[in-house]
């Protein structure tokens, strides 16, 4: 195994594991699909990064944060449904990206490119993914209670605004990291598919979180490994691997 492949596998496994664990909360809050538009909104940032030659995740992050703040403000101001707002944000992100994204570099922005990740980026990815995982794990009871019934959580003393901020920050970091692994088009799949497969296999919350993280890591490692020896892009292979796990989970779904 080459040094580069090891870096790619490590980065991919950490991103996908943390994304899938976060996905269990997003699925419960019926917000998994929100990661999609946010990934799309990251496209202009990814385009800038490709044009000026810096990390895609670094370029994506401010755009994702801006997207989250924009959706939050628009919802307060207009009272429009989250679906409508995310659709607006999605279209804006894609349109802005294609305005100045060089077409020969479009693939990396759209489907990700983890194959050339460096040592510094790998270390940053490990640190950020671990922070997201630990923070989500610590806040899991409160966020889960909020997803069951927000007023129940408030009455139990959960500071809903604070936990929503933590939760949205975790999404912003994961989407920004996810763009480098699977691109701006498929970030929703990175959080949604392993979590959905895990839900089908699980009877308890503990199993749910553990299985989602494991499916995320397995998908990333298989996808990146196959990509390294087939010459195909890793992003789509990661998503297809998790889709295959989901397909296996369907007949045994615990509903």
């Amino acid at each position: 195994m080459t040094h580069q492949l090891l870096l790619s596998l490590t980065s991919g496994a950490f991103i996908a594991g943390a994304a899938a664990y976060l996905g269990t909360v997003m699925l419960s809050k019926k917000m998994a699909i929100v990661a999609g538009p946010l990934g799309h909104l990251a496209l202009p940032g990814a385009a800038l990064a490709l044009v000026y030659g810096f990390s895609i995740s670094l370029g994506a992050f401010p755009f994702v944060v801006a997207g989250i703040v924009l959706i939050w403000l628009l919802e307060i101001r207009t009272k429009l449904q989250m679906e409508a707002l995310t659709a607006i944000v999605f279209a804006t992100g894609v349109a802005a990206a294609f305005l100045f994204l060089p077409i020969n570099k479009a693939e990396a922005a759209l489907v990700g490119d983890i194959s050339k990740v460096g040592i510094a980026a790998t270390i940053a990815t490990i640190v950020l993914s671990t922070i997201v995982f630990v923070v989500v794990r610590l806040c899991y009871p409160e966020i889960m209670l909020m997803s069951i019934h927000e007023d129940l959580a408030k009455a139990e003393g959960v500071r809903v605004k604070l936990y929503n901020l933590i939760y949205l920050s975790a999404i912003a970091i994961i989407v920004a990291l996810g763009v480098s692994l699977v691109g701006g088009l498929m970030t929703a799949a990175l959080v949604a598919i392993p979590a959905a497969a895990a839900r089908n296999f699980s009877r308890t919350l503990t199993q749910y979180g553990f299985a989602a993280g494991a499916f995320g890591v397995i998908s990333a490692m298989v996808g990146i490994f196959v990509a390294a020896y087939s010459g195909l892009p890793a992003g789509p292979l990661v998503i297809l691997t998790s889709a295959a796990i989901f397909a296996v989970s369907v007949p045994v779904a615990k509903i």
């Binding site: 069951i148 009455a155 839900r199 009877r203």
Partner: peptide, 21 residues
């Protein structure tokens, strides 16, 4: 202690969540 309106078993129907959890 507060139990809000509309909180029933359907609120957690889709969640792998045991009573203990």
């Amino acid at each position: 202690g507060y139990l809000p309106q509309g909180l029933n078993q359907m609120s957690v129907r889709d969640l792998p969540l045991t009573v203990k959890e």
